[in-house]
Amino acid sequence: MPFMAPAPVTERKTRLGIPRALFYYAYFPFWEVFFSELGAEVVVSGRTNKKILQEGLSVSTGELCLPIKLLNGHVADLVGRCDFVFLPYIISTQKGSYYCPKLIASPDIAKAVVPGLPLMSADVDIDNFFTSLFATLREVASKLSTNPVRIYAAFRKALERQELFECHIHAGALFEEALAAARQGRSPADDARGPAGREGEGPLVAVVGHTYLFNDPYISFDLLHRLRERGARVVTSDSLSAAQVGEEFSALEKGTHWSLGNRVVASVIRFSRRRDVGGIVYVTPFGCSSDSLVKEYIDANLPERKPLLVLTVDEHSGDAGVVTRLEAFFDMIARLPAGAG
């Protein structure tokens, strides 16, 4: 704008909003570093609460699953607070398996139901020969910087942070712990004691499901902490590396079409083989179509039976119901002799 006075030196940074939902729980460390390195101020939507959930429910159509409704709530929470809302189209992050159509099209859904959404997006499609991750990121970053060297430097830094974060996750840390540790630059080896919660005498409980579900304390009824309060040690399906998921799948006739579904099947099979795992809690949203057939894959391929609690959650689930079922589940584990499956 040549006719205006030159901008003051302390120009306000571009505010970039990231909704605390869906892929936030998988890739936030990367995005946080990448965008702040490019000079943006990263704004994360608030922790899920009643208001955000209600907002999401009121704008969404009834048939959508809870995680998508929640995403809409978080997106609405960001509108007006930032210049752009970053929401990528994540199609595949691995060859041959895909994300659910609702996840892929989640930016389209948010755009249709949240009016005036300043969407900033890009396609992430590893399975597509014509797109590369860096090209995608250049497209995303074009609103912040056009300098490829700067973008590349931010990309490298972000990748480092993400790798460190994933090291912690694979070592068994929960999302918040791993995020904090990666921010401080600690490596898993520095944690002499190991992440909190892995210590203790209680039974080891495996929580499997989609990462954005059990890592959100509000919609999962604080499942992870409830388990710890009862003295259990917790390990989640996030702790499996991609290679471990692939390993489990090479033994099967055919994998499912879904990246998240594959992780669920692989982790249930792996955890049920482990002698130290006392029981498995499988969290799934009501009406999740990609999970519906996954259960058949689990049933058909389970090597050993372990106590398995399937916890279906939606916006109508009540606290009391979840607590009762968890108590019953603990009683079941306690009655089984240690190590028996």
Binding site: S60, T61, L64, C100, D108, A112, G287
Partner: peptide, 16 residues
Amino acid sequence: PFSCMPEVVVRSILPR
């Protein structure tokens, strides 16, 4: 169909 993955997405978009 209820719980049809692609069409539930379309259902959210069609009103727009």
